[in-house]
């Protein structure tokens, strides 16, 4: 049990959908050497974002410490993720009139004065998908990707097409299975890859996420 923002935390709070995202963003922040400047928490699924935010505004001690709130959400499918975040913010603002969260007008752009809120939609607010799409984009030059795509094409031709909302995670698993054959590494899941020798944060696929995180620490 903990206060949402503890006394020794920096007041820049990045909230993400789940445990996989926490691992990803912590690893990236460490790589950028800003891990000590941003607190990363999990709001346990997009449907619970509004409840997390409601608790944030009710916790006045944490709210007083908050300088920048970054909200990360998957774009998902056939939904407007940015509108959904704004709706969650509006909901939170009905809970405590003394603690009002700024509601950004545009995705990615920090909004607010003393307290700022910014949003990051993955893979992009113009695309459908999720964090895995970003990671897969960083692997697009890897020779294994062609094999993985051929595998899913084969499944589809045999009437075993995956729905779009599960395809990115499935693709990631198959890619990592292929990687384990190449490297002799038996790790299988996205949370394990950031410490591997073959992992790189240098891909342009991560550029906008890096910019988003830098925005959070430069206000």
């Amino acid at each position: 049990m903990a206060q949402i923002i503890a006394e020794d935390k920096p007041g820049r709070l990045l909230i993400v959908e789940g445990a996989d995202e926490v691992t990803f963003f912590k690893a990236l922040c460490e790589f950028l050497d800003i891990g000590h400047l941003i607190q990363i928490e999990d709001y346990k699924g997009k449907d619970r974002l509004r409840l997390f935010l409601a608790n944030l505004v009710e916790d006045s001690t944490s709210f007083d410490r908050l300088a920048h709130l970054g909200i990360v959400r998957d774009a998902g499918y056939k939904t407007n993720a940015f509108d959904s975040i704004r709706s969650a913010l509006r909901h939170a603002n009905t809970k405590n009139v003394l603690n009002q969260l700024p509601i950004p007008e545009k995705n990615f752009v920090p909004f607010g004065n003393q307290l700022k809120v910014s949003t990051l939609i993955l893979p992009d607010d113009a695309l459908e998908g999720m964090l895995e799409n970003v990671v897969l984009e960083s692997f697009k030059e890897d020779s294994i990707i062609a094999c993985v795509n051929a595998y899913f094409a084969c499944l589809t031709s045999n009437g075993l097409a995956l729905t779009e909302n599960v395809l990115p995670k499935a693709t990631m698993r198959v890619f990592l299975a292929g990687k384990s054959v190449v490297t002799g590494d038996t790790r299988w899941w996205i949370t394990d890859i950031y410490t591997q020798d073959w992992w790189s944060w240098d891909s342009p696929a991560f550029d906008s996420i890096k910019l988003f995180l830098r925005q959070m620490i430069t206000d």
């Binding site: 049990m1 949402i4 619970r48 409840l51 409601a54 608790n55 009710e58 916790d59």
Partner: peptide
């Protein structure tokens, strides 16, 4: 009630 339930489930200090 809803906010309280979330606080309990998310183990927040309230």
């Amino acid at each position: 009630q809803e906010t309280m339930q979330a606080a309990v489930e998310m183990d927040f200090e309230i």
